[in-house]
């Protein structure tokens, strides 16, 4: 049985606005990671959240190792969701690997997207000649090894702890059911698709205006990568955050929301930015 993209990717729609804002989670988690940021946009936008196949509450039976061997498969999911929901003028918000997924989708169907908001993007994680990605191949193998040991069952990843949060019991329930409950095989393949990818040549092709949020002291996307993005992405607004780490939408949601709103406000007063540059 083939499930619709909406069911397959556990699409959740919230908010009161008309313009869609599509939030794409990063590697290792699912849509719950947007909990601290997405609600701030529900008044003005149609907030669309989803899980990649193999993450969260997606339809795991739809996982196809070939399709998801590269980020193109994930980009296809994004486009299929957009088509099924007939989303137009989409503001795509992608964290980490999803930034590249969004870029691939926007290069495929540029007319569908109005903006790309890219949080901690990196077109390539592994160093290559003069290019500084921040990692060597062996580092990624270290990650895979750590993941493997944890997914084996010693860690409590697969059985999330009930959160002591009596005033918001719905969160507990949600977490129990889904968060990070990932199949080790799928997680490994997603990690390989993410960290062995090289999307540098896709950057100059982007025609959709974008905002890049670069954290200071980001261990995954170091400043050199941010600068590379800035140089090769046309018409981008580049902002270095006070937030450190790689997940500002979780560690520093207020700053993240503020910068996103600033950007969107500047876009609405100035409808066609310098994309032609």
């Amino acid at each position: 049985m083939i499930s619709s993209p909406q069911a397959r990717n556990n699409v959740v729609i919230r908010g009161h606005g008309t313009q869609p804002m599509l939030f794409a989670h990063g590697f290792g988690c699912d849509q719950t990671m947007w909990r601290f940021v997405a609600p701030a946009f529900e008044n003005d936008y149609r907030v669309v959240l989803f899980d990649y196949v193999g993450s969260g509450k997606s339809d795991w039976s739809a996982y196809d190792p070939q399709r998801y061997a590269t980020l193109d498969g994930y980009a296809r999911d994004v486009l299929e969701i957009c088509r099924e929901l007939d989303l137009r003028d989409v503001i795509f918000v992608g964290h980490s690997v999803s930034s590249m997924v969004g870029i691939l989708a926007a290069n495929e169907e540029p007319e569908r997207f109005s903006d790309l908001i890219l949080i901690g993007p990196s077109p390539r994680y592994i160093n290559d000649a003069d290019y500084v990605g921040g990692f060597e191949r062996a580092d990624i193998e270290g990650l895979l090894d750590t993941m493997e040991r944890n997914y084996l069952g010693w860690a409590s990843f697969l059985t999330p702890i009930i959160m002591k949060n009596p005033e918001r019991p719905e969160l507990t329930k949600e977490l129990e059911a889904s968060f990070c409950s990932t199949d080790p095989e799928i997680a490994r393949r997603f990690a390989e698709a993410t960290f062995y990818a090289d999307n540098r040549t896709d950057l100059p092709k982007v025609r959709v205006p974008s905002l890049v949020l670069q954290c200071s002291e980001d261990a995954i996307a170091p400043p050199e990568v941010g600068e590379y993005m800035h140089r090769h992405l046309r018409g981008t607004t580049f902002r270095v955050m006070e937030a450190t780490g790689h997940c500002p939408h979780m560690s520093h949601p207020e700053e993240t929301i503020r910068l996103m709103k600033d950007y969107l406000a500047s876009r609405s007063t100035e409808p066609s930015p310098a994309v032609s540059a």
Binding site: G28, F135, D139, G142, L143, D145, T146, A219, I220, C247
Partner: peptide, 10 residues
Amino acid sequence: PGGRVFYQTH
């Protein structure tokens, strides 16, 4: 380095 990624993603 691998541990940093694991820390940030998981």
